[in-house]
Amino acid sequence: MAKISVYRFLSAGCNACDVEILECLVPRYGLANLGVEVVEEPEKANVLILTGAGTIKGEKALLEVYEKINPPKIVVAVGNCSITKNIFDKGYPIIGPPNKLIPVNYYIPGCPPRPQAIIKAIADILGVKIEEKEEFWKTPEGFRGRHEIDGEKCIGCGACAQICTADAIEVIDGPEKRIIRVNYGHCTFCAFCQDECPTQAIRLTGVYHLLTSDPRAARVENEVNLLSCTICGGTFFPEKQIEWALKRVVEEKVPIYKDYHDNIYNSMRICPNCRRKIENIKRAKILLTNLSERARRP
């Protein structure tokens, strides 16, 4: 491939991705060693690097710039704003993501991506291998990269989706399974999900090479089984969450309920709709009376 000339275009981001692209120019990262130069006019460029979610005001300029880029006209979206609008998703002046306006070839997720990730991604696009030591790629402990969900630990409660700052985590209830989906192309990597998770199932790892050509593929999923109601048979709640709650309440908080473990478990397996029906109230009432008497006894 001929010399790569990059033109940067920023529209409605926070500027951090731009700083990281500039950072790639310093000798330590050596973007220039890959035969890449950053040019100041779109007419001289053949690669367009986009950052930011795209605003109404920048739309015309973006289309003009795209027209002026020389073939092969490769467009790379750097950072999550330019992939999915990220945290600015519902902002009123935001019209992006830019792939709605112009065709985008590659996406580099991150908020912002590390310079190492940008360098590696550009090298991958060019088909070049970078000779660097282990030390260069290493991330420190506690680095906030791509998520990992431990299928054993995850109870499917959806606390991560509740706290998520950018609506990156979805909870999708199917007929039998619940899917917890982390769209890391939409993520701010704030790690609130990691802090909030009651079972430490979700964790941000040191994986940061996330180059993709399909933004929809940028996700991590976990499936949990849903419990079916013992009366109507419909699914309503993750199985593991009930077990977790039961364990917490019966075994840890109120040990005297231990004898009634099975009774409570059985009544928890009735879905809210059935629980409200008159014919089922009697059964619940007996259980509650037993439990309260048991709790009152010294």
């Binding site: 005001k57 945290i87 600015f88 902002g91 002046p93 935001i94 706290i163 998520c164």
Partner: peptide, 18 residues
């Protein structure tokens, strides 16, 4: 205005933590 993102409006659609 080329960087206007409507942040002050977005602030009023999320919780204090978010």
């Amino acid at each position: 205005g080329y960087m206007h993102r409507g942040i002050e409006k977005l602030f009023t659609t999320r919780t204090y933590m978010q």
